[in-house]
Amino acid sequence: MNRRQFLSIAGAFAGCAGSISDACAIAHSDTSSSIRSLVLVDLEGGNDALNTVIPIADARYRVLRPHLAISRDRALMLDERTALHPSLLPLMSAWRARDLAIVQGVGYDAPNRSHFRSRQIWDTASHADEYRADGWLDRVNEFHASSVTVSRITLHGFDTHENQLDRHAARLAGLASQLASLRASLIASGAWSRTLVMTRSEFGRTARENAAGGTDHGAAAAHFMMGGRVRGGLFGMPPQLDRLDADGGLPVGVDFRRLYATVLDACGQVDSSSILGARFEPLRILRV
Rank of each mutant, 00 (worst) to 15 (best):
S177R: 12
S177K: 09
S177F: 02
Q178I: 02
Q178A: 15
L179T: 04
S181E: 12
S181N: 10
S181P: 04
L182E: 08
R183C: 12
A184W: 02
L186F: 07
L186M: 07
I187L: 14
A188M: 08
A188P: 05
G190E: 10
A191P: 00
W192N: 03
W192R: 05
R194E: 01
L196N: 11
V197L: 14
M198I: 10
M198F: 11
R200I: 04
S201Y: 03
S201V: 01
E202C: 12
E202R: 14
E202N: 14
R205C: 11
R205G: 10
R205N: 11
A211T: 10
A211R: 14
G213L: 11
G214V: 06
G214M: 07
G214F: 09
D216V: 04
D216H: 08
D216C: 09
G218S: 04
A219N: 15
A220P: 07
A221G: 03
A222M: 10
H223Y: 10
M225E: 10
M225H: 12
M225P: 13
G228E: 14
G228A: 12
R231F: 08
G232E: 11
G232Y: 10
L234H: 03
F235V: 01
F235I: 01
F235D: 01
F235L: 02
G236R: 02
G236I: 01
Q240Y: 10
L241T: 07
L241F: 05
A246W: 05
A246T: 12
D247W: 07
G249V: 06
L250C: 08
P251M: 07
V252E: 09
V254L: 03
D255K: 05
F256E: 00
F256C: 00
F256K: 01
R258G: 01
L259F: 02
L259G: 02
L259Q: 00
L259E: 00
A261L: 00
A261H: 00
A261C: 00
V263M: 08
V263I: 15
L264P: 02
A266C: 06
A266N: 05
V270A: 07
S272Y: 05
S272G: 04
